[in-house]
C-alpha cells in the first residue's frame, strides 16, 4: 500500500497517556493523533510524543471543542491553540468534527449533531472558512455518530457532509464506525452513503469499537472494533485508496497484545479492500 498523500503509513492509533507505552515500545504505528484540548502547546509536551516526533511518526492534532457547527462565531483562542499544535508537531493536517458542543453558556461535553438544513450549512461553511484562515495546515472534517436526529431535515447526511466539504474546500476525515452506527440506528444504507461522498477529499479514516444496548448501537471507543465495521472498512478500501486508518480507544484500554491484534485486523481489512480495488481496476484495463 505504501504511504499515502499525507505521508501516513497505513495504520495509526489515537495517542492517549494510557496507550503511550504500547505505542512507543510494542506496536508498529504509522501515525498518531492527539486530542488537541488535552495538550498545552505552550506548556509541557509529554515526553513520549517528543520521542515519536523524533522517530518521524506524523502527529495529527484532533480537536473536539471548537464547535464548528455552533451558531456562535468560533473562539479565536481555541483556533490559536490548534494552530500552535499543528506548527509545533509539523502536522500534515488538523481535524475537527461536523458538530456543535456548546450553545450560549452551556457545554454539552460531547459532539452533538447539526440540523441538516441549508441555513445550518451556510453557518457551518462560514465557520469552517474562518477556521481554515487561522490554521497553517489543511483542515479535515469528521462525520459524527449521533443518537438523536433533528426534525425537519432538508437533506440526508451524505448530501449535507458532501456540500459542506465542496463549499468550504475542507478535506474529509471519514469515521467509518460512525457511518456504521448512524446507518444502523437511523436506518440508511451505509454503502450508498460511501458511494455519495467526495472520496477524493479523503485525508484519513477513523475506526473504533462500540456496543449494542437496548437495540441501539453506541459508539463507545471502549470496546473492540466489531466485524461489521471492519467489513465496511474493506468496502471503503475497495472504492478508493485510503491514506491511513486510525484506531480510537478512549476507555477500558486494551493490553499490548490485544491492541496489536486489533491493528492487525484493521490492516488485513485494508489489504482485502485494496486487493479488490486493484483487481477491479486491472479487469477494466485488460
Amino acid at each position: 500500500m505504501g504511504t499515502g498523500r499525507l505521508g501516513l503509513s497505513p495504520v495509526g492509533v489515537g495517542w492517549r497517556p494510557e496507550l503511550a507505552l504500547a505505542i512507543d515500545r510494542h506496536v508498529e504505528v504509522g501515525f498518531v493523533e492527539i486530542v488537541a484540548e488535552d495538550i498545552d502547546p505552550w506548556g509541557d509536551i509529554p515526553a513520549p510524543l517528543t520521542l515519536l516526533r523524533q522517530r518521524g511518526i506524523p502527529i495529527i492534532p484532533h480537536g473536539i471543542g471548537l464547535s464548528l457547527g455552533g451558531a456562535e462565531p468560533l473562539e479565536t483562542a481555541r483556533l490559536r491553540h490548534l494552530a500552535r499544535l499543528a506548527t509545533l508537531f509539523d502536522a500534515p493536517v488538523v481535524s475537527e468534527h461536523v458538530a456543535f458542543v456548546r450553545a450560549g453558556e452551556r457545554e454539552a461535553g460531547h459532539l452533538l449533531p447539526l440540523p441538516r438544513t441549508f441555513a445550518m450549512l451556510d453557518v457551518l461553511v462560514e465557520n469552517i472558512q474562518m477556521a481554515a484562515q487561522h490554521l497553517p495546515t489543511p483542515l479535515a472534517l469528521e462525520n459524527i455518530a449521533t443518537l438523536v436526529e433533528w426534525p425537519g431535515a432538508e437533506m440526508d447526511e451524505a448530501t449535507f457532509l458532501s456540500e459542506a466539504l465542496r463549499r468550504s474546500g475542507a478535506r474529509l476525515l471519514l469515521d467509518i464506525e460512525n457511518v456504521y452506527a448512524n446507518a444502523r440506528n437511523h436506518r440508511f444504507a451505509a454503502l450508498d452513503y460511501l458511494d455519495r461522498l467526495p472520496l477524493e477529499r479523503l485525508s484519513y479514516v477513523h475506526i473504533a469499537g462500540g456496543v449494542e444496548r437496548g437495540g441501539v448501537y453506541h459508539d463507545t471507543h471502549a470496546h473492540p472494533v466489531i466485524p461489521e465495521v471492519l467489513a465496511l472498512l474493506e468496502e471503503l478500501c475497495a472504492r478508493t485508496e485510503v491514506p491511513g486508518v486510525l484506531l480510537e480507544r478512549d476507555d477500558q484500554f486494551p493490553g499490548i497484545d490485544e491492541l496489536a491484534q486489533e491493528l492487525e485486523s484493521i490492516g488485513a481489512a485494508m489489504r482485502r479492500g485494496d486487493m479488490r480495488r486493484r483487481s477491479a481496476a486491472c479487469e477494466c484495463s485488460c
Binding site: 455552533g70 451558531a71 450553545a103 450560549g104 452551556r106 454539552a108 440540523p115 441555513a119 425537519g152
Partner: peptide, 26 residues
C-alpha cells in the same frame, strides 16, 4: 440565521443536559 440556530441548538442542549422540555419534533 445564527440567532435562530442558537435558539434551536440551545433548546436541544437544555433538553439533553438539564432535563428541560424536549423541543417540538424531536
Amino acid at each position: 440565521q445564527r440567532a435562530v440556530l442558537l435558539q434551536q441548538q440551545d433548546a436541544l442542549l437544555r433538553a439533553l443536559v438539564d432535563g428541560s422540555q424536549i423541543p417540538r419534533g424531536f
